[in-house]
Write a protein that binds this DNA or RNA. Sequence first.
DNA 1: CTGAAAGCGCTTACAG
DNA 2: CTGAAAGCGCTTACAG
Lengths: 341, 341
Amino acid sequence: MVSRNEINMADVAQRAGVSVATVSRALRGLPGVGEATRTRILEIAEELAYVISPEASRLSGGPTRRVGVVVPATEKWFYGEMLAAIERRLRAADLDVLLYQVSDVAVRSRFFRELPTRRKVDAVVLIALPLPQQEVDRLDHLGVEVVVAGGRIRDFPHVEVDDRAIARTAVEHLVGLGHSRIAMVRATIYGDEHWAPDTLRLEGYLAGLTEAGLPHREEYVVSVPFTPTDGAAAAEQLRSLPEPPTAILCFSDEVAFGAMQGLRALGLRVPEDVSVVGIDDHPLAEVMGLTTVRQDVAAQGELAAEMALLRLDHRRVEDVVLSHELVVRSSTAPPPERADA
Amino acid sequence: MVSRNEINMADVAQRAGVSVATVSRALRGLPGVGEATRTRILEIAEELAYVISPEASRLSGGPTRRVGVVVPATEKWFYGEMLAAIERRLRAADLDVLLYQVSDVAVRSRFFRELPTRRKVDAVVLIALPLPQQEVDRLDHLGVEVVVAGGRIRDFPHVEVDDRAIARTAVEHLVGLGHSRIAMVRATIYGDEHWAPDTLRLEGYLAGLTEAGLPHREEYVVSVPFTPTDGAAAAEQLRSLPEPPTAILCFSDEVAFGAMQGLRALGLRVPEDVSVVGIDDHPLAEVMGLTTVRQDVAAQGELAAEMALLRLDHRRVEDVVLSHELVVRSSTAPPPERADA
DNA sequence: CTGAAAGCGCTTACAG
DNA sequence: CTGAAAGCGCTTACAG
């Protein structure tokens, strides 16, 4: 028994000269309270700066009014942007966000083993991350709604973009400029794992080449962690090939920024010597002049949050595939004459 | 009364043939439980995948085991990085993070008016944001520990860097290279508010000029929202002056990236024609070749979280000022001959 | 070392 | 429209 000297519903009830049951109903806007009574109770609660104890409320039957958001790493622009949108939407619905960061494989496996969100949230929004089947299946023990943002995980309701089409769009742009030697920098996370968006973008890249009648060259596909520094290293590696590519499609803009600078460090000009294309439309893409395929990250987060809200309301939801858009800037141009073999 | 068909402590007690009191003690590692009894209880709880109801636990006297983290915007690198570190440290102590994003003035004033963390958390970590005195004082009604990361707010325990010294270091570097026309791009947030780090950096910049015997030129200080695009605009504005600066100190690396690209778009070379210095050491700074003053953002977050943990343990804490470091790369060089008057 | 019982602060049938 | 009372699932003195 701990004295918390917080103001309780009983205090409000006493001041209002009614029972706690009536205060409870009045404060939550439930029917069955006289208008005058309700007004008086609301005034007193306001005056006393009373807030309902979430614990007691929950214990006696209410929802937690909390949603767990699982994100790989908030310091990455993509995830930070998505988290921002999710938080905003949930906050607007007066739900609290419980943040779970799953930044490496050890934390991930611990998360799915222990499921720390249990008994704490009404729903979980998962920002897409690579998940072994065994960990995916643990989600069934969560006992709450699960929705996925920025990809798909099993059959949970999800919001995504068409990653295959995105990569294909980028390749088509490069082919249209006359490129035939097009490389791709893939990205890994958690050491060397590829997640769905990466695999799908690879497929789109290969499909784009096939469509243009171009060969697949194994040496034109490299995988690196998705940081600018690794993007630069990947570009240097690609340019050291006997027959180097004249265009590079990067998994994301952040990788592409690194690639552009890596090429310049090599004394190459972008786009005159090598073209670079990213994916995202990162806030820096415009000033960097990066040609990219834009996706609306915030909208994905907002819609996923919206889906979670609908599910909490026992409503049906439909999966969403958001559109994308090629944004041509100054990092792409026709290949140099002599490189056209 | 809602049936949640969750497993309760009573179920565990029944299976173990003991009272709930004993289960409660055993699970929390409290003394006064026989070793054999404890082991059996732990096994049964494990087998049943039982987790203590946080609500019930809290209601009967325990802490919430939640910490509120208030952040201006998770999509900004600085805040995302700091949030990541805070979450990691709190998670390691088995505390949950309740995320509050205060992305504009309306949300901010609502946050401080309603204090939505009340009765929900044991402590609050505030990532420094500009706060009117009236809103600062509202924090006293929170009833829990408050610590501040990345700046200071009134007399709350805090972790910060020496923003004055950081800016002065940058100016000294430029002066050392021979620059005498040094501009500064300040940053605003929430429309046109300046927060403490910005004001302190301005002071450091002015102190650096004074120290070098250089005049303060009003037209050399411009304020923009802290985005790359606005950084580019600021650089263009500065270069349009009758006597343009030969070096630009930017509030942050993100602003500096924009400035560099803005200058290049004007046909100017960095650093041959204009030097640019940032602050942070953003992940892109290396590939961009940006000279900057590095601060350890993650360490600030981690230490602030640590401080909150200590305060929850009723321990004393000391404010921390972390060190910074000039990182010279290729965006700074002596001023061009002809510009030296 | 262990248990019975009160109490935490609400919500919700059930009565009136 | 309103209230008395049970119950949510724990923790913690208090006894033994």
